[in-house]
Each structure stands twice: as C-alpha cells, then as structure tokens.
Amino acid sequence: MLIQLIVSGVLISAIYALATTGFTLLYGVSGILNLAHGTTLATAGIMAWYLIGTGHVDPFSAIGLGALTGMVVGLVTYGVIIRPLQTMLKLSTTDEHVFMLVATLLWTIILQEGLAYTFGDVPVSVPQLVPGIVEIFGVRTPISSVLVAVFSWLVIGLLWFYVSKTRSGQTILAASMNPKALVLCGVNLKRVHLVVWAIYGGLAGIAGVLVAMILGVSPSGGMELTATAFSIVVLGGLGSVGGTLIAANLIGFIETATAYAISPSLRGLPALIILIIVLYVRPQGLFGRR
C-alpha cells in the first residue's frame, strides 16, 4: 500500500513538475500569470487525441505535435492578448495586473468554448505510449506511465541545461533578474519575451499531451488544471523553478495519498487547504524570495 502510494506519487509528481515549470518560468521572466495555462494544456492534449484518432499519428509524434500546438497557443496568447494590453492601454502597474488576469481569464473561456464547440465538451485521453506492465517493488505499473515520468524529468533537465548553459538561456535568466539592465546591454527585450512564450507554449504542449495520457483532459477541465498549477507554483514560491519542482512533488504525493486514503473525488481538497495555510503563514511560498 505504502509502496504503491510512493510509486504513483512519483509518477504523477513528474507530470505536475513538467506542467508547472513553464508557468513559473513565464511568471519569473515576464511577471504574467497566465490563467489560460490549464486550457493551453487541454488544447494540446485534445489536439493530440484528435490527431491520433485520425489514424495517421502515433502517440510519440503526437507529443511533438502537442508541443507545436502549445507553442502556437502560447504565441497567440502573447500576440493577441498580452502584447496589445501592454502597449495599447496606458495602465498603472496595479491596473495592468488585474487587467492581465481578467484578459487571460476571458481568453480561457474563448479557448475552452472553442474546443467544446469543435470537439465536444467530453473528457478525452490519449492512448498509452507502449502497451505492457512492469513491476516496480512489487507494484504493477504501466510501462507507459514510467516512460512518461522519465520523459517529463528529461524535458525538465533539458530546460535546466538550456537556461543555465546556453547564451540564449542566460539572456532569459537575466531578463527575469533585471530587464532594464538587459535592455541597456543592447538586448531586444521583446524578442526575449517571444522566446519565453514559445518555450512556455512548448512545455505546456508536451505536458498537456502527457496529462491527457495519465489523467485525461476536457475543455472545461482546463480551469481546474490552472488551479492545480497555480497552487503548486504559489506553494513553491512564484517564479522559483526549484521551489516549483519540490512543491509539485509535495502536491502530487498529497493528492495521491488523499485519493487512496479518503476518496478519489476529493484528491484536490487537501492541497487547496495546505495552499491557503501556506499563503497565510508564508505569503512568498515555501522557497520564494520576498
């Protein structure tokens, strides 16, 4: 029982970690909380499901196409919602913050209802990568789930390598620390933001397909995914990628334990309550900077 819990916890936490790193990276660099995050995941997941359903695409390529879908959604979000809001309206910082939240919320509804209209508002799941079952410490686990977890950490590792070892990645890191100084160094900040949104979308797209594989997605379920992602990111400390990874594991385990011990329908509840408590005691999150 305990081992089973740990195994499922590790698997689900890996996806949660991948599904939230993009969200926190985006906040760290551009200061934007994309409330359409969960719906971006759902869009990629549903697209992968649809493409596989046509019969021309296998699950592996579907992950790639999902990443592409996420990237397109991310760039459209930036180009149609975020950028115009920043340039067209002369808003104070507080106002811009709230307008951003409201605008991404409206964008969520537009995306969600567009998906519901095109594909129907039903939960869909992407078929497993490979058939078969493997025993881990005596726990029977689908091989596909293990692959998904490994793949998630691999993508996170690649992201870490990109941000800390490449020049382009270092620029992004610098933009999250001091954008003004970066502009003085002659870097085009707008291009940095475009790159970040593209990376964000790609990460969200991959995560969306994997979430659709393990948990399933639906158009109207996007908002719940946003809430989970939001809880994880805030718990870890907004903008702190390391904190997000730890929080993703924490929430993943708590949800799995709740689902096993109490009821699967209540899996989200303890995480939400913990989130509130953490916010009250330590508003900057467990690992966030003030």
Binding site: L33, H97, V98, L101, A227, F230, S231, V234, L238, S265, L266, G268, L269, L272, I273, L275, I276, L279, Y280, P283
Partner: peptide, 27 residues
C-alpha cells in the same frame, strides 16, 4: 488574513475558497 497578501495572492485565495467550498458541499 487574505488582505495582508499583495498582488495576485488575494485573487488566488478567493478563487481557492470557492473550490474548497464546492468540495465541502459535495463532501
């Protein structure tokens, strides 16, 4: 307690309050 929080946190807490209440009603 929520009003001591700044920025997006207040909005988040109010959103989470709805989700918790909904779950409790179902529970």
């Amino acid at each position: 307690p929520a009003l001591r929080l700044r920025g997006p946190y207040f909005g988040l807490v109010t959103l989470v309050a709805v989700l918790i209440m909904r779950q409790l009603i179902i529970l």
